[in-house]
Write a protein that binds this DNA or RNA. Structure first.
Length: 792
RNA sequence: GCCGGAGUGGUGAAACUGGCAGACGCGCGGGACUCAAAAUCCCGUGGAGUUAACGCUCCGUGUGGGUUCGAUUCCCACCUCCGGCACCA
């Protein structure tokens, strides 16, 4: 009897896969393709079992699809730019490139030791010039198309990481990475115009039927489309602001307000007769105008300023505001209404001014009650009529209009349509669509990222670096201060260049790109990773894309996936791809917890896969992680569970070891129909298992039940063996070969071959070894997935 | 507050289209093997009751109702937990 020595098998077969280039693939139009991808890794140093779970999930899929006859692309790479490496450099002095490449080497080794079937010949690292060259290439294309633009704006500044954050990277007013409170800061920044694609990104969500509903909903909310109308309220005393220009021209707003009126955005124009006041965001430019016109401008400004700084804490302090003393004319009722400044009105959304309809908006109701502003019912419901005096909450729902002149009696939704049209006809308003989604600020004042490929010329302003001069390589720097200004500005010989247009002196842009740029198209680069002319050959992408199966953490449900969908559309418009959606099927894998908490170095609760490999080998770890729960679910790590999976593999090993002499080799008869009851029972179990495992892996992605089906088959085989060879395999090894009946051998062979094949995506090292011992030539690379006969 | 998802033995979980609840594993109990242990193999393992015994009966999928011959699954109300968003007008 041969012993099961997992570590030796791991080595043997990993070497075999490498030398035979088992997982390297080329475009082959004669075969169906399958692109299986796991989100590439940030090279933090060591992968723990939580990271590794994702790669095993993808590997089971990739290996299964290969056996099902697909030409499988299963690549891997490194999201290698980013803050942690640079922060480490500030602390330790080690250059980010050094630490990053070291980390990549270590983690690559970890993945190889797990036997993940990657096409390593396609490996990419975003920090290498041959990759980020095409970040720059794409940037220039976006610049040409007006999709990259520069703007002075108030940005989210993280005082600890010393950099700008995208809106998406600010969580509860704090930095997503380090948790420090974000400060506003005015800077010239580069933006990508993702809002141009807002409608398309929203509509595309409906086609993503193989994405988790949760992710689709999160994206939909994030884009935050709402239909409404701009409405102008004329100022009762326009002289306070005469001669002043636009009041609002910010991202996300197409509204143009002149200062002889206040323009509001509302989704409920049908309630406008109940608009008893106007509220401005503290940042609104009219506030300053009103201050100047007031009796005590300094006090006025101080009040507004106080609300502005409180903005983040509105929920704590409640709704507050003050009357500016100015009046505006409600364009529908013709009545003058007071203009207030309110701390909860957002400057960054709509027009930064809203109409206050306390009867029909919860927030306005609260504000009106706090400051004793009048409430008017304008939408009355039939069942339980409202009264302004007694109502305890706003009625935001349905009803018919009252107190609204000629619109009285109209159902609210119809009134909304009619009044929007009327406002437009009268030139006092217009239907519009607003999005929560903002353009994507990509400038970072950091070193370890892609240089933005433009120069600033005194004569010509912003001038793109010519394509032929790409990549703009990161200069070597030796000191990392973390001061907060762009580190690239320290390198004069790099910064000072000549203008490509006039040859005069110019300065390079010293900001680098947000690392989310890197990850927004890497899946396309894998199609053609060595291309030096363009990001990828469109023909290669046409064959491999879209990604058929994509798995990764749910934390990327919004940022990465939305940006990738955006980039795909941009590259479509550039003419490189012919589809809209990059990822057909998405799986968000659950985290692995230890002691009830997410694994992290700082908590000291990480499980290093290498420790498990030393004890049990790669197959047991792979099998356990797949068996413990469905892939989407969070799981608690359990040493005992891993032990159980190891025991199961031992059971399989002994079983096959027992039978391989008897059933192995060539010339075994096909499993037929002339069976005893026991044989028929085993055949039935075999075919049922094939059906279940195939469905569980390919369709349902219930890898845990796929494994349990295999366990059942093994149990059945043990029982069958008992009836055949009078005892459990371990005890009757000497009796192997006792079976004389050809039919028994055939049935056993069918079952055991099937078992080994179906086990191979989960435990590939052992499966290869057993397959070889069963007398099959050519390895599992040549084997195909078993099929089942419903008749059986 | 709004939007998602979940709640099943001691435990991780399963039940795919409304059809034997708890597959498979862990743990635990018992047995075989052994001088002994480990490993391995076999049997048992939701609760209560009942039988000399094979068995049989009742209860049981967060709570309360409902639809149905039949509900973990569908409907209504509620509770709890997890995740996301959070004055977006």
């Amino acid at each position: 009897m041969a012993d099961y020595k997992p570590q030796e098998l791991d080595k043997k077969w990993q070497a075999h896969w490498t030398s035979s280039k088992a997982f390297e693939v080329d475009v082959d139009a004669s075969r169906p393709k399958y692109y299986c991808l796991e989100m590439f890794a940030y090279p933090s140093g060591h992968a723990h079992v939580g990271h590794v779970r994702n790669y095993i999930i993808g590997d089971v899929m990739a290996r299964t699809k290969r056996m099902r006859g697909y030409n499988v692309l299963h690549p891997f790479g490194w999201d290698a730019f980013g803050l942690p490496a640079e922060n480490a450099a500030i602390k330790t002095g080690t250059h980010p490139e050094t630490s990053t490449l070291d980390n990549i080497a270590h983690m690559k080794g970890q993945l190889q030791r797990l036997g993940i079937s990657y096409a390593w010949d396609r490996e990419i690292a975003t920090c290498l010039p041959d990759y980020y060259k095409f970040n720059q290439w794409i940037f220039l294309k976006m610049l040409e198309r007006g999709l990259a633009y520069r703007k002075r704006s108030t940005v989210n500044w993280c005082p600890v990481d010393n950099t700008v954050l995208a809106n998406e990277q600010v969580i509860d007013g704090a930095c997503w990475r380090c948790g420090s409170i974000v400060e506003p800061r005015d800077l010239e920044q580069w933006f990508f115009k993702i809002t141009e694609y807002a409608d398309e990104l929203l509509a595309g969500l409906d086609t993503l039927t193989a994405w988790p509903e949760k992710v689709v909903v999160m994206q939909r909310n994030w884009i935050g489309r709402s239909e409404g109308a701009y409405v102008k309220f004329a100022l009762a005393d326009p002289s306070v602001v005469s001669g002043f220009g636009r009041t609002k021209d910010v991202e996300g707003s197409s509204g143009v307000s002149r200062t002889d009126h206040v323009e509001v955005f509302t989704t409920r124009i049908d309630t406008i007769y109940g608009a008893n006041f106007i509220m401005l965001a503290p940042e609104h430019p009219l506030v300053e105008r009103f201050a100047a016109a007031s009796s005590d401008p300094a006090a006025f400004r101080a009040k507004a300023q106080a609300f502005r700084s409180q903005e983040r804490d509105v929920r704590m302090g409640g709704k507050q505001g003050f009357d500016t003393g100015q009046r505006a004319i409600n364009p529908f009722s013709g009545k003058p209404v007071p203009i207030w400044v309110a701390n909860f009105v957002l400057w960054g959304y709509g027009t930064g001014a809203v109409m206050g309809v306390p009867g029909h908006d919860e927030r306005d109701f609260e504000f009106a009650r706090a400051y004793n502003l009048p409430i008017t019912i304008v939408v009355q419901r039939a069942d339980a009529p409202l009264s302004a005096e007694t109502m305890t909450e706003a009625h935001a729902g349905e009803g018919s209009l009252v107190n609204s002149d000629k619109y009285n009696g109209l159902p609210w939704e119809e009134a909304n349509r009619v009044m929007t049209a009327d406002a437009r006809a009268r030139g006092i308003g217009e239907g519009t669509v607003q999005y929560r989604l903002k353009d994507w600020g990509i400038s970072r004042q950091r070193y370890w990222g892609t240089p933005i490929p433009v120069v600033h010329c005194a004569k010509h302003g912003v001038v793109p670096v010519p394509y032929a001069e790409l990549p703009v390589k990161l200069p070597q720097i030796t000191t990392f201060t973390g001061r907060g200004d762009s580190p690239l500005a320290q390198v004069p010989e790099w910064v000072n260049v000549t203008c490509p247009t006039c040859g005069g002196p110019a300065r390079r842009e010293t900001d680098t790109m947000d690392t989310f740029v890197d990850s927004s198209w890497y899946f396309l680069r894998f199609c053609d990773p060595k291309n030096d002319e363009q990001p990828f050959d469109p023909a290669d992408a046409a064959y491999w894309m879209p990604v058929d199966f994509y798995s990764g953490g749910v934390e990327h449900a919004i940022l990465h996936l939305l940006y990738s969908r955006f980039f795909t559309r941009v590259l479509r418009d550039v003419g490189l791809v012919a589809f809209d959606e990059p990822f057909t099927r998405l799986l968000t894998q659950g985290m692995v917890l230890k002691d009830g908490a997410v694994m992290s170095k700082s908590k000291g609760n990480v499980v290093d896969p290498d420790d498990m490999l030393q004890k049990y080998g790669a197959d047991a770890l792979r099998l356990y992680v797949m068996f413990v729960a469905p892939p989407e679910k969070e799981v608690e790590w359990s040493d005992a569970g891993l032990e159980g999976s190891f025991r199961f593999l031992m059971r399989v090993w002994r079983l096959v070891d027992h039978w391989c002499e008897t059933i192995g080799g060539e010339g075994i008869p096909e499993s037929g129909t002339d069976c005893t009851d026991a044989e028929r029972g085993l055949r039935r179990k075999t075919h049922e298992t094939i059906r279940r495992v195939t469905g569980d892996v390919e369709e349902r992605m219930h890898l845990n039940t796929a494994v349990s089906s295999l366990m059942e088959l093994v149990n059945e085989l043990y029982s069958f063996s008992e009836g055949t060879a009078h005892g459990a395999p371990s005890r009757v090894a000497a009796e192997a070969g006792r079976v004389e009946r050809a039919q028994t051998i055939a049935v056993l062979r069918e079952a055991i071959d099937g078992l080994v094949l179906m086990l191979s995506p989960f435990a590939p090292h052992m499966a290869e070894e057993l397959w070889e011992r069963l007398g099959h030539v050519g390895g599992l690379a040549k084997a195909s997935w078993p099929s089942f006969d419903p008749e059986v």
